[in-house]
Nucleic acid binder design. Structure first.
Length: 273
DNA sequence: CATGACACCTGCTCGC
DNA sequence: TGCGAGCAGGTGTCAT
């Protein structure tokens, strides 16, 4: 569920509680969220370590430890990370609890348990990082880089901007919203997007992600910030979840289709070409 | 290599 | 009220 703005919000919220803090105890309650490491090894490795930094890459939370390894969390559809004051192990959906020296708990909660948690060496992190596309909010993400990643292959533009190897962090909600902002039909072949449209799409992507972060993300169902609050961007969505409502630009009714990759695609047939 | 189908899970909503 | 079907913000694997 969480896309770039939601994960960014989570990181900002939990960072100040974690950086420099010593890990007193780790409890993995749902071992199937761990990838490539067993429960005991994960718990043993983290206990006694300190968090050195908390950051985001694509839609993933990256927490560096003082031994150089990194805990990487992919929340996927229903995962959430939050700092709590009290024990969370009674909550049936808490997969991992990390108790800090402050007494606070870092909880990884995941109703569907589709999320994934990794413990990576510096070398493994390098490969992980390299497998993801550019960060859309980094200064290095330019119009020409967007143009280059759209030019390859024959897939729909919506699929192209959601492909994490091409561009990191955009999911279904913000893909729909960015394409509406840019007035581009989501089903258009990516390679057919011209320079003017690429310019509009670049601006739309940066704009929608920045504004969503400023609103602490979009809460439709499960998503919560790192402090357990709801995001506010859902009230700003122009097309996502608004089938049958009128386009705020041209007054035509918003259409829903599942023709692209089987995912919900909302668009305005009046002004998205 | 690109692409599409499917799997992974649970919970919620809707129609009957 | 109960029940089955369909759906959900993501990503990895497998066959073609």
């Amino acid at each position: 569920m969480p896309e770039l703005p939601e994960v960014e919000t989570i990181c900002r919220d939990v960072r100040r509680h974690l950086v420099g803090a010593r890990i007193e105890r780790v409890r993995v309650l749902k071992p199937d969220v761990l990838r490539g490491i067993a429960r005991q090894a994960f718990e043993r490795h983290l206990t006694g370590r300190r968090f050195r930094s908390v950051g985001r890459r694509a839609k993933h939370v990256v927490m560096a430890l003082d031994d150089g390894r990194r805990v990487v969390i992919q929340p996927r559809m229903t995962g959430s990370l939050l700092v709590a004051e009290a024990d969370g192990t009674k909550d049936p959906h808490v997969a991992i609890q990390v108790r800090l020296e402050s007494g606070k708990r870092l909880l990884y909660r995941d109703v569907r348990r589709l999320g994934a948690v990794f413990l990576l060496t510096p070398g493994e992190w390098g490969a992980y990082h390299a497998g993801l596309g550019p960060e859309p909010l980094a200064p290095t993400f330019t119009r020409s880089r967007l143009g280059a990643l759209l030019a390859i292959g024959r897939l729909a533009v919506k699929k192209a901007i959601m492909d994490q190897r091409r561009l990191a962090g955009i999911g279904n909600i913000y893909a729909n919203e960015a394409l509406w902002l840019a007035r581009i039909d989501p089903s258009r072949p990516a390679r057919a997007i011209d320079a003017t449209e690429t310019r509009r799409l670049h601006r739309a992507i940066v704009d929608i992600l920045s504004r969503a972060i400023a609103s602490k993300g979009t809460t439709l169902r499960d998503y919560r910030t790192g402090l357990g609050a709801r995001g506010r961007f859902q009230s700003r969505l122009a097309v996502y979840g608004r089938r049958g409502e009128r386009c705020r630009r041209c007054r035509r009714r918003i259409v829903l289709t599942h023709a692209i990759d089987g995912r919900a695609t909302y668009f305005c047939p009046g002004c998205q070409r």
